[in-house]
Simulated scan of single mutants.
Amino acid sequence: MHGSEDKDDRHSTPPTDQRSKLLLRVMFSLAIVGMMVGLMIGRLTTPDPSVLQQVEVTADGLVVWFNNEPKTHGELIDGTVALLFDAQGKTARGQLKLNDKDVNWRLRLTDKGLLLTLLAARPLKGEWAGSEVDDRWRLEIHLQEQ
């Protein structure tokens, strides 16, 4: 026994095992396939993001249409009505008449979604309610002067 050569398999050096390298490759391949299947299932079960489709002016407020129901947070801040939608869309602005007085509305993008603000010369009160109509989400905003 002068060395660890493999002459006739009688020495103390064990033969090299090819299965350990193949087992590692198989396990790694299974892990990648499992991750890809999980990503595909997650992608299929994720709901579509809410998107603003249109804004309509009514006699006493606005009607805002979305493709599906967004998370909505609304507040009355110092006579201003502010609604934050967890949705995507374009910025817009406009004006409506409430008791023959102007009310300005503005829709802008923020880092948390779309922010709709309604502002008039006099303090406003607002109520809003949403419902599903024709596979779309309709949010009605009714305004009053304080």
Rank of each mutant, 00 (worst) to 15 (best):
V103Y: 02
V33K: 05
T91A: 13
T72D: 03
E75V: 13
M36G: 09
L109W: 07
G61I: 01
L114F: 04
K97S: 11
V63Y: 00
T46P: 03
H11W: 12
K7G: 11
L109Y: 08
V26W: 00
P123D: 14
M35I: 12
N67D: 10
L115A: 06
V55A: 08
H11C: 15
F85E: 05
T110M: 04
K112Y: 00
L116K: 01
A120V: 11
D6W: 00
D17K: 05
L39S: 12
W65D: 12
Q88H: 11
L44M: 14
V37N: 12
G61S: 01
D102I: 09
G61P: 02
M36E: 03
L83P: 02
W65E: 12
F66W: 00
K101R: 15
D8P: 09
T117H: 01
K97E: 06
A59M: 01
A120I: 10
N67E: 06
E75Y: 00
P49V: 07
L119K: 15
K7P: 12
R108C: 10
I141A: 03
D102P: 04
V133R: 10
Q144I: 09
S50A: 11
E127P: 00
K21T: 10
R43A: 14
L62F: 03
H142M: 06
K7V: 12
E69I: 06
E5M: 13
L114V: 13
E132S: 13
K101P: 08
D86M: 10
D48G: 13
L96P: 02
K21M: 04
L52C: 09
T58H: 01
H142N: 09
L139I: 11
W105L: 07
L39Y: 01
Q54N: 15
Q18K: 07
Q146S: 14
E132N: 12
R43E: 09
W105M: 09
V81T: 07
E140Y: 03
T13W: 02
A31R: 02
G38C: 08
R108P: 07
L124I: 07
G130L: 00
R136F: 00
D134Q: 11
P15K: 05
M36S: 11
S50E: 02
L96G: 06
R106F: 05
L44G: 15
A59V: 08
L52I: 09
D6E: 03
E69H: 03
N104Q: 11
G34K: 03
L24D: 03
H11T: 15
Q53G: 12
M40T: 13
K71E: 06
L96K: 05
T80I: 14
E56F: 02
D9N: 15
S29F: 00
L115M: 08
W105Q: 07
P49S: 08
P123G: 13
L23G: 04
V33I: 13
L84T: 09
V81C: 06
R138F: 02
D134K: 12
S12E: 14
D86E: 11
